[in-house]
Design a protein around this nucleic acid. Structure first.
Lengths: 221, 221
DNA sequence: CTCCCGTATTTTGGATCCAATATTGAAAAT
DNA sequence: ATTTTCAATATTGGATCCAAAATACGGGAG
């Protein structure tokens, strides 16, 4: 038997539940990049059979979060340096488009939501809560991208973020990085309030470049 | 028992076999956009159980080729006019990047492969073989994109092509379109041989715009 | 005649079971 | 000691079976 609140949150199918759990486990780093995924053990841990687990894994394979070899199984995907640079380059292209489309459509309500998201980021940073900050940061950016009114574009960007989330958490471990992120967000918000797409794009590009510069060394380990 | 040739072609797992078959069925239009997918019937038709079929469907869901609703099942995805424009806009961004990266890296062997691909396109066009022309056209473009040395970018572009393939086949039904495609490919090849990224990008943009202009009316049906 | 409700049927979701493949380890041959 | 082979084990792949949900259908009330 499940408690009502639990039942409300839990997705209506086991595959969706497992998908969410797996995504979290990978993007938070609880499942390390490169680690093989033992279906039996994972299924038991999540209290489901292997069937919905395998469906969830196929989904993640499509998104590039796990790799698959026939008859050998799934592994958490690893990122090479080239992969990292490629992902960030593609993000640059897609996110610029999203921002340029979003800026003329921004409503006051949108700006308020962005402010609220930024507050969450700053609160998490002040508390030194790294996972919370990573989550809030993501909400901040996705809120903006969603304003572009291009759902497929937003989805692509999301999956690109997913592939590097496991590494991004490390980035927020550093207090200096946390502070810089906040400043850069404020600059972005400022540009958005002034409806300057060019400036918003520029500040976000700088923001991204800082992240990739910090991330690169971590990939050699 | 399987014949040796058949065994060699057929993927090592049923899920991969089904994935290929489904992809073909959807992109060639044998499974119509919007059509619900009856798992039992399809599984029997492909001579497999529902388990590998469902794994393949999850993969296609991730790529956006089918839609899924819990407890209701899968349908072949349909494209709205907005979807079409969005997909082509994203393609424009990503393909421009791919071409600009590819041009300085193009070897004579690459150009020879592109020429060969173009020959296939023209042969299929002369024969009036629409599916063959669609396939050859795809090979032509992907050959170029693969030269960029950005595998993730190429994969993204491929999945974007997949989502519109079902409609693109109609495009080649028209003889005028077939002829124009050939001309535009030749212009592109010319630009590539002269190592002019700008011109290649321009011709490909024109090429794409023609396609989307022809495709738009078809989406109202 | 229309609408609503309850039952029958279809279809999907998931668990278990068996088969096929890969991996591991130990014994034997060089 | 090293390598090779083969058997034992672990793990994945797939088929069948059962449960749960949605859809379709038919009867009754208004």
């Amino acid at each position: 038997m499940m408690s009502p609140e639990e039942a409300r949150r839990r997705p209506p199918t086991a595959q969706q539940f497992v998908l969410g759990e797996l995504r979290r486990a990978i993007t938070t780093g609880r499942l390390r990049p490169g680690a093989p995924i033992r279906q039996d053990a994972l299924a038991e841990e999540l209290q489901v059979s292997r069937v919905p687990l395998r469906e969830a894994l196929k989904m993640l394979e499509g998104e590039g979060l796990v790799t698959y070899q026939a008859h050998k199984g799934y592994c958490v995907a690893t990122l090479s340096l080239d992969d990292l640079r490629e992902v960030y380059r593609i993000r640059e292209l897609l996110e610029e488009e999203a921002v340029r489309r979003a800026v003329p459509l921004l409503t006051d309500a949108d700006l308020a939501r962005l402010d609220a998201a930024q507050d969450d980021v700053e609160r998490a940073a002040a508390a030194g809560d790294v996972p919370a900050m990573a989550a809030a940061n993501r909400v901040f950016h996705m809120t903006l991208f969603d304003c572009a009114g291009m759902p497929r574009l937003a989805r692509l960007i999301r999956t690109l973020w997913d592939t590097t989330d496991a590494y991004r958490s490390m980035y927020y471990g550093d207090a200096g990085n946390r502070e810089r992120v906040i400043k850069e967000h404020r600059a972005t918000l400022d540009a958005l309030r002034r409806r300057s797409a060019d400036e918003a794009v520029t500040t976000l590009n700088v923001h991204r470049d800082h992240a990739v510069a910090e991330l690169e060394p971590l990939l050699h380990a």
